[in-house]
């Protein structure tokens, strides 16, 4: 079943002269992990906002086209309704804390209280996400006392507790240190294993290569290409879009080491290592 259908989506922010999205169309299947790449101001964040309904319900402006999330039309449903199907995590962990709650446990409950979920179910879901995102130790802490990585995991937990089928992550680790980023990427992997459909914008290209089933390359409000990572990272014009292929792909490309079955260059450390070792063996 198609989880996301976007048809000819055009959007212009209020007071802006240029279209931020210039007629975007694509579809995503349930359970897919999609990486979104491209340079700053390419429209990646705007697309994220359009998927969860912040565009056009929070940011007004000129909007046309059709976005359907799990059969729900974004234009016809408000953000609260949509939040049952799709959630979003932003860059800055700090501003995703509501500041109205004093503990991690209560913070996670915030969205559920608003949705009117009954208490027993709320508690069950909180326990589940605390475990899933490895936050049990911190459940009684004040959210503002957490490290960046922990805070971002809390933001993810708070969204996942609302049981969305799709989660959008807009550069979730760009403001974290390596350890915090690693924690968050691990958490995202476990969401993917749970069958949640993931749309992740990320500059760390090696991570996209490692996790994504398909990669969407955006530029100037348009989708330039949408394909498996191996094919996206093969493009000769990639640098023009502000993206450099993973170093593993570039090594193997320089040495012309391909995967025999697919005829494509590897994109991850593990795959590159295996192919290079096999290559050496064949030579000697």
């Amino acid at each position: 079943m198609k989880k996301i259908i976007v048809e000819n989506l055009k959007y212009r922010y209020p007071l802006s002269e240029n279209l931020a999205l210039k007629g975007i169309s694509f579809e995503v299947e349930g359970g897919e992990f999609i990486g979104i790449i491209g340079r700053n101001l390419a429209g990646k964040s705007t697309l994220c906002q359009a998927l969860v309904g912040l565009v056009p319900h929070f940011y007004k402006g000129a909007y046309s086209g059709n976005v359907e999330i799990s059969g729900m039309n974004v234009l016809e449903n408000n953000i609260s309704e949509l939040s049952k199907k799709i959630g979003i995590v932003f860059q800055n962990p700090f501003t995703q804390i509501t500041a109205a709650k004093l503990t991690v446990y209560e913070e996670i409950a915030f969205g559920l209280e608003n949705m009117g979920i009954e208490i027993k179910e709320t508690i069950r879901r909180i326990e589940y996400v605390l475990h899933l995102l490895d936050l049990e130790k911190y459940k009684d802490r004040n959210p503002f006392e957490l490290s960046g990585g922990q805070m971002q995991r809390l933001a993810i937990a708070s969204i996942i507790a609302m049981k969305p089928e799709i989660i959008v992550l807009d550069e979730p680790t760009s403001q974290l240190d390596p350890q915090g980023s690693e924690e968050v990427f691990k958490a995202i992997q476990s969401l993917s294993r749970e069958g949640i459909t993931i749309m992740m914008v990320e500059q760390k290209i090696e991570k996209i290569a490692q996790y994504a089933d398909r990669v969407m390359l955006m530029s100037d409000g348009e989708v330039v290409d949408f394909d498996v990572p191996q094919k996206i990272f093969l493009r000769d014009d990639l640098l023009n879009y502000g993206v450099q292929a993973p170093v593993f792909t570039r090594v193997c490309r320089s040495l012309n080491i391909k995967n025999k079955n697919t005829g494509l260059y590897p994109v991850t450390l593990d795959e590159a290592y295996e192919l290079m070792v096999r290559h050496e063996q064949n030579r000697s």
Binding site: I79, S83, F90, N114
Partner: peptide
Amino acid sequence: MALEVRAFNSREKKT
């Protein structure tokens, strides 16, 4: 924005 996507303006009866 973060509040919006956590159903802050939901019309359901709050628990």
